[in-house]
Amino acid sequence: MKTLGKTILLAALAWAASAHAVFAPGEKVIVLNSGDGSISIVDPVSRKEEKRVPVGKEPHHLMATPDNKELIVANASSNDLVFLDPKTGDILRRVPGISDPYQIAYSPDRKWFVSASNRLDRVDIYHGADFRLAKRLPTGKVPSHIAFSADSKLAFVTLQESNEFITIDLGKQEIVWTMPTGKQPAGIWMTPDDRHLLVGITGESHLEIYDWRARRMVKRILTGLGAHNFVARGDGRHVFLSNRMANTISMVDQQTLEVKETFPVPGGPDCMEITRDGKQLWTTSRWIRMVTVVDLETKKVLHQIPVGKSPHGLYFQSHAPRQ
């Protein structure tokens, strides 16, 4: 028993040391509990929720500001943005008057801040510098995720219930073309070479790959039921895709446009973060009110951390590069 005890202790110490190595001292993991309007502040070393703070109504997605100095939480039902300290999750300020912000994104040149109004079928374009509304664009049904061309001229937005994605010319601020897709497209991802758009087809079991300049689909790849959302592995080559209904995550090679592997992750995996060292994947498990941590070497679930209701977006500062 003594040997077993020592082994467990050593393993725990090794984990703590590795967690410390990845995360900066005092750094927290920030999780949006969309169902109860709060953020969970999780300590990545002890793997415990330290506190739960009310943030607004229906916070679904979050992102860092382009200078990485603040973290923006989009409260869809509160019609506002809340800015947090990206390291600790402390609330810094609130920007009201942002209509139904569901998904949010800055254009690469930081000129535009785009917000998809999932419930009200609009895409709103704000000036990136001061959140002044530039254009409110009526769209098809249920606009969801957002991607951009590298030159910031075009924004691509999936329309989940119209089974298509739209392309918005950010200069003209109008929809310039529309592409039909499979059922309920959600996540949309631009490959680092700016050539292909990957679209997660949540109503089916695959992702679709589009040559957006030629405006045609070039490939369809099976991944898993409910193919949904993307995050970069950080090596410039691979991207992870969560399959919400299959309870799996697939890793896709963006050069060969093939699935390299698919591994199980329970509880309806949704948004993801990869640690800077590329060793861990953190994901929100929507249905089981947990954050799940996966070891990317063994593909085993390392930990499940209880958080609030319907956890959706998550963030930590020591994340892998976004491409």
């Binding site: 049904k141 989940q160 219930e161 059922k183 309920q184 109503g203 409910g226 209904m245 249905w287 089981i288």
Partner: peptide, 27 residues
């Protein structure tokens, strides 16, 4: 409560929603 909720949803409701082509209504 969360475990019962998830089990009921994943085993009964989610497959039905998927078959009905209403994945947008998953949440």
């Amino acid at each position: 409560w969360a475990q019962i909720h998830a089990a009921l949803f994943e085993s009964v409701v989610q497959p039905a929603v998927f078959r009905l082509g209403m994945v947008t209504w998953l949440e």
